[in-house]
Amino acid sequence: MITVFNWTSPHPSSFILVGIPGLEEVHVWISIPFCAIYVLSLLGNGLLLAVIKTDSSLHEPMYLFLAMLAFADLVISTTAVPKILCNFWFRDRTIHVNACLAQIFLIHSLNTMESGFMLAMAFDRYIAICNPLRHSAILTDRAVAKIGLGIVMRGIVLLGPHPFLLQQLPYCRSNIISHTYCEFMTLVNLACADTRFMNFYSLAIAFLTGGLDAILIVLSYILILSAIFSLPSKEARLKSLRTCSSHICIMLVFYIPAIFSFLSHRFGHVAPHIHILIANVYLLFPPMMNPIIYGARTPGIRQRTLHILILNPAGKLLGRVRGWRKKAL
Rank of each mutant, 00 (worst) to 15 (best):
I228S: 09
L306A: 15
L306S: 13
A296Y: 08
P313D: 04
P313V: 10
S240V: 06
A258W: 01
L311T: 15
P286G: 00
S245R: 14
P272K: 01
I250M: 09
L212K: 10
G300M: 05
P299V: 10
F267S: 11
Y282C: 12
F207A: 14
T195S: 13
A193Y: 06
H265W: 06
I228M: 07
I259E: 06
N290V: 14
C182Y: 04
T186F: 08
L225S: 12
L309E: 13
F260K: 04
A227S: 10
M288L: 13
I310T: 03
A227K: 04
I248A: 15
L306Y: 09
A271D: 10
G295E: 00
T195N: 02
I222Q: 09
Y255W: 03
G268Y: 11
F260R: 03
R196V: 08
M185R: 08
I308Y: 03
Y201E: 08
L311S: 15
F262D: 07
G268E: 02
Q303I: 04
R304D: 07
F200N: 15
S226T: 14
C249Y: 07
T180W: 04
L223Y: 11
L263F: 11
N312M: 14
L238V: 04
T305G: 06
S178R: 08
K239P: 09
V270F: 09
G315K: 13
T209Y: 12
F267M: 14
S202R: 00
G211A: 13
V270P: 02
H265N: 09
L263H: 01
E183D: 08
I176P: 05
I177N: 00
E183R: 09
L241E: 03
S220F: 03
N199T: 12
R304K: 13
I215D: 02
A214G: 08
H269M: 12
L187W: 03
H265Q: 01
E235L: 03
E235R: 01
E183N: 10
H273E: 07
D213L: 00
G268N: 02
L203M: 06
L219K: 02
S264M: 06
I293L: 14
